[in-house]
Amino acid sequence: MATNSHTDVLGEEYHAAQKPEGPVSAAILAGGVGALTLGVLTTLAEASTGIRDFLNVYDPVGPLSGKTIGAVVVWLIVWVVLHVIFRDRAFESRTALTVALVLIALGVLGTFPTFFQLFAPAE
């Protein structure tokens, strides 16, 4: 029984070793793009009443409905595109993480009230 388990694990390890790192990096980069998109939409909604109204796809939730739907849609589309591009390539996940962390940091900045409220039209 133990021998079978060892064989299964080694077999799976061998198979995993053949998997390229590209899809991992694609997922990481897409996550960064999703976070950035949320930050950009949040700041744009504050800066422009037209964009705010456009993002108000469900009135009880307000513009947050469009911001979150938009960010999720962009994230998934970018993920699919990057996955297709990198699926057979060796793209280091550490590099992808570095890029994604920058994108996430910008996304956090865009959702930070003290920052995005700077763009609010003067009352």
Binding site: A27, I28, A35, K67, A71, W75, G107, P113
Partner: peptide, 16 residues
């Protein structure tokens, strides 16, 4: 204002 936005980054990264 921060909570309602930043919370959405968690499921995206958790899914990744």
């Amino acid at each position: 204002e921060w909570k309602e936005h930043i919370a959405w980054m968690s499921p995206i990264l958790a899914t990744v």
